[in-house]
């Protein structure tokens, strides 16, 4: 028998602090596998955000820089401009990217910085205790919207991928999910493409990954996958939103 699946060298042996069933672990693994398969682990530099994935630097077997809340794209801009031969990416949640860090990410994309962004959207603030995020769905309960998000008061959830597809500087924008093995395989393909765009020097590439938060959604890990599929995907449709041109 031959080994058909084992832990990638791109991940360290540190146990993650994520709650049981949190899909951050899957997304970490996909990024690490892509970097290993592209043979760029020695020259990859990640930038971790503030949020649940604040400790991502411990879990990857590559160089990492921690950024202040929302400022990962600004830090990644600096790293990439000083080290244009490195593969630089930010790993950010929705509280980090779609709220406090909106200015930084929009302008990094607008300048078409040659970096890759992995945007993890779980429709809630995880680390701080389940508050309403810009991405929280209408009617979704959170600690700051105990009766459910009221769009009259809080507006409709922000559709980041759709918005970024309209920015002239973006080269590649795709939304994927990790709620079942098929979607996980598709997510990996999209993440690989986003890194290939950077290696080819095409400019800003972003993959939005729909993710779960069983603890703050108040659901079991298995029910969270179903909730994601039934509630998030209809509002946040999966698919490619922008492809500048094919990268060979």
């Amino acid at each position: 028998m031959a080994i058909v699946f084992e832990k990638t060298k791109g991940l360290s042996n540190v146990e993650t602090h994520y709650c049981p069933g949190c899909t951050h672990g899957i997304i970490h693994r996909l990024v690490a596998e892509v970097l290993e398969e592209m043979d760029v682990l020695p020259k990859a530099i990640g930038v971790s955000p503030v949020g649940c994935s604040v400790l991502a630097f411990k879990y990857f077997n590559i160089d990492f820089q921690e950024a202040t809340h929302g400022r990962a794209p600004a830090v990644a801009t600096g790293i990439k401009r000083v080290h244009p031969d490195k593969v630089v990416f930010t790993y950010q949640g929705d509280g980090d990217l779609a709220s406090i860090g909106t200015a930084e990410i929009v302008h990094a994309a607008h300048r078409s910085e040659n970096i890759t962004t992995i945007f993890v959207n779980n429709a809630i603030y995880g680390m701080t205790g389940g508050q309403m995020a810009p991405t929280t769905l209408p009617g979704q309960k959170s600690t700051t919207s105990p009766l459910g998000r009221d769009p009259k008061h809080a507006g409709m959830p922000l559709k980041i991928s759709e918005m970024f597809a309209t920015i002239p500087g973006t080269a590649y924008v795709e939304r994927v999910s990790v709620h079942d093995p098929v979607s996980i395989r598709n997510a990996k393909k999209a993440i690989r493409k986003a890194f290939e765009y950077q290696v080819a020097g095409k400019g800003f590439a972003m993959v939005e990954v729909l993710s779960t938060c069983p603890t703050n959604w108040g659901l079991s890990p298995v029910d969270s996958l179903t909730w994601l599929k039934d509630n998030m995907i209809p509002y946040y449709p999966l698919g490619n939103y922008k492809t500048l041109e094919e990268v060979k």
Binding site: F5, K7, C22, H24, G25, I26, P181
Partner: peptide
């Protein structure tokens, strides 16, 4: 079956698959 679906979805990379 050795399909590795379990390993694909495991958030903690607990599983190794041989076939």
């Amino acid at each position: 079956l050795g399909c590795a679906n379990c390993a694909m979805i495991c958030p903690d990379v607990v599983i190794t698959v041989e076939r």
